[in-house]
């Protein structure tokens, strides 16, 4: 197969993409039980970020209601 995915390669500015940042800030990292307890279990987080991100992407693609 000759075809390759066209996309920018490394050497781009080191600003981390939001989706990568949220992967890490919501999915990994040190978890301490803060005084403010909010249920951020794995499933919730995936839903939060998917809902938040996809709804934004969609709103870019369709006419606002």
């Amino acid at each position: 197969m000759e075809q390759t995915v066209t996309q920018p390669q490394a050497d781009r500015p080191s600003q981390i993409a939001l989706v990568d940042l949220l992967d890490r800030l919501l999915g990994t990292g040190v978890v301490l039980a803060g005084d403010i307890v909010i249920s951020l279990s794995g499933v919730d987080l995936v839903q939060i970020r998917l809902q938040a991100l996809i709804s934004t992407i969609r709103s870019d693609m369709v006419e606002p209601r």
């Binding site: 800030l25 919501l26 990292g29 040190v30 978890v31 301490l32 803060g34 005084d35 403010i36």
Partner: peptide
């Protein structure tokens, strides 16, 4: 060791308590 997003305590005493509870683990990390 970066914390997960939105870890909030009511005061510095709470933060210290949080550190103390996981002290050995934080040290290892």
């Amino acid at each position: 060791a970066p914390l997960r997003l939105a870890t909030v305590y009511l005061d510095d005493e709470g933060v210290r308590r949080g550190l103390a509870e996981r002290c050995a683990e934080l040290d290892r990390v």
